[in-house]
Amino acid sequence: MPIIKATNIKRTFGEGDLTTHVLKGIDLTVETGEFLAIMGKSGAGKSTLMYQLSVLDEPTEGEIIVDDVDVVQLNEHERTSFRLNTLGYVFQNYALVPDLSAEENVMLPLLMRNYDWQTAKAMARVAIDGVGLEGKYLNLPAELSGGEQQRISIARAVAGKPKILFADEPTANLDTVSGTQVIDLIAQVNRDEKQTVVMVTHEREYAMGCDRIVHMRDGEVVDIEQLK
């Protein structure tokens, strides 16, 4: 059963002669529980596609249904609320709040979802334990390595058990060992929690654990590789 259904997605930037067509009418379906990778060279439009699917951007044209909600029709407040309650994000640059401890960073979306402080704290600790960083609850991001920060970022994304986890080049700033650990964690989340994962990456070895790989070039899907 599809959890994401994108139809004829177009995204353009600029106007008139300066118009750039970054996405040129993409149709894509993501099944519930699927681990999907989007690959392509720089400028292929893979991140732009993920931003549309993850409700961070609005397509110029087309329809996107996520978890039975037509997200293109949502206003800004509804989009924020939808992202909070349905989606989880892992960004390339970890995106942790530097003034908050690891634990508080993970708690942030939980508190926003109205969990009380103690429950949010307990859930955050479980999530941090789950990414193998027991005992680093109170560390500030600056006191963690890049790999550890990205694992905290994954903990933040999955602590509230979102229906879909989006990861935008999560290994881009990591060494090979840390990168592999992060990909393993994301795969584990997909495997154990049955969460749908959509990941953008430009490294094939990291995409090999996925169910499917969507290959893009010049704003179009050129191939869909079925791995499992």
Partner: peptide, 16 residues
């Protein structure tokens, strides 16, 4: 600014 964008991205309300 980037951090603010990410906070909004993960669902933190503007008002917060």
């Amino acid at each position: 600014r980037q951090q603010i964008g990410i906070l909004k991205g993960i669902g933190i309300e503007r008002r917060a």
